[in-house]
C-alpha cells in the first residue's frame, strides 16, 4: 500500500507541483492578511467613531460580508464583475480582493473590540498623572490594544489559510486544484491516488495551521493577565 504513495509523490513533477500549489495558497493568505490589517485598522477606527453615519455604514459592511459565504463573494467578483462589467480580473487577484474584503471586516471588528474593551479608568488614570491625550494613546492605550489584537490577528491568518481552498472554484491553481489534477491523472493507474493525495493535503493544512493557532493561544494566555 505504501508503494502506491511513494509512486504518486515521486512520479514526474507531482511533489513540486503540490508545493507550487501550496506556495500560491500561502501567498494569497499572506497578501490578504497584510492588506486586511492595513484597511482593517482604518475601518476599525471608523467603527469606534462617534458619527452615526460611519457607525451604521461600517456595521452594515461587517454584517453583509459576514453573512454572505466567501464562495458566493468569489463568484460575484469573478463572474459578474469580469464578464458583465468588462473588468477582466485574474483569478488570483479576485481571490486576494475577496479575502481582503472579508479580512478587513474581521480585522476591523477585532480593532473595535480591542479599543472599546479598554476600561475607561485606563484613560482616566493617564489624565490623573498629567499625560496629554497623545501620550495616553502612545504609552497606555495603543500598547494594550496591540496586545489584545495580536492573538486575534494570528487567528485570522489561520482562518484565511483554511478558507483558501474556496479559490478552487474560480480555477486558481492552488494546492487543492493541483491535488485534484494529480488525482485525475494518476488515479487511472493508481487506485490509492485519491487517498494519498487528499490525505497529504489534509496533513499539510494541519501542520501549517496547528502551530499558528497554538501560538495564538499561547500569546492569549500569556497576555491575559
Amino acid at each position: 500500500m505504501l508503494d502506491s504513495a511513494v509512486s504518486i509523490f515521486t512520479a514526474g513533477r507531482n511533489m513540486a507541483r503540490l508545493m507550487e500549489g501550496l506556495w500560491i495558497t500561502l501567498e494569497i493568505s499572506a497578501v490578504s492578511v497584510a492588506l486586511s490589517m492595513i484597511f482593517g485598522i482604518a475601518v476599525g477606527l471608523l467603527m469606534t467613531s462617534r458619527h452615526r453615519f460611519w457607525k451604521i455604514a461600517t456595521r452594515l459592511y461587517l454584517e453583509t460580508v459576514r453573512v454572505i459565504p466567501i464562495l458566493v463573494l468569489l463568484f460575484l467578483f469573478y463572474y459578474t464583475l469580469s464578464r458583465n462589467w468588462g473588468i477582466n480580473l485574474n483569478s488570483v487577484v479576485v481571490a486576494v480582493l475577496v479575502f481582503t474584503l472579508w479580512g478587513t471586516a474581521e480585522m476591523a471588528d477585532l480593532v473595535r473590540g480591542a479599543i472599546t474593551s479598554m476600561p475607561n479608568h485606563q484613560r482616566e488614570s493617564g489624565r490623573a498623572i498629567g499625560l496629554t491625550e497623545a501620550q495616553i494613546n502612545r504609552y497606555i492605550i495603543i500598547p494594550q490594544a496591540v496586545r489584545r489584537l495580536i492573538p486575534g490577528v494570528i487567528n485570522l491568518t489561520t482562518r484565511m489559510i483554511k478558507t483558501t481552498p474556496f479559490v478552487f472554484f474560480i480555477n486558481v491553481p492552488e494546492l487543492t486544484k493541483v491535488g485534484q489534477q494529480i488525482v485525475e491523472v494518476a488515479g487511472m493507474k493508481n487506485y490509492m491516488a485519491s487517498f494519498w493525495v487528499y490525505g497529504f493535503i489534509f496533513f499539510l493544512y494541519f501542520i501549517i495551521c496547528w502551530p499558528i493557532s497554538k501560538l495564538s493561544l499561547h500569546l492569549e494566555s500569556k497576555w491575559q493577565n
Binding site: 483558501t164 487543492t176 493535503i201 489534509f202 494541519f206
Partner: peptide
C-alpha cells in the same frame, strides 16, 4: 478539526 478546511476534509 479546527486546523483543517472543510473542503479538504470532504475530499478526503
Amino acid at each position: 478539526s479546527r486546523n483543517t478546511p472543510l473542503m479538504i476534509q470532504l475530499f478526503f
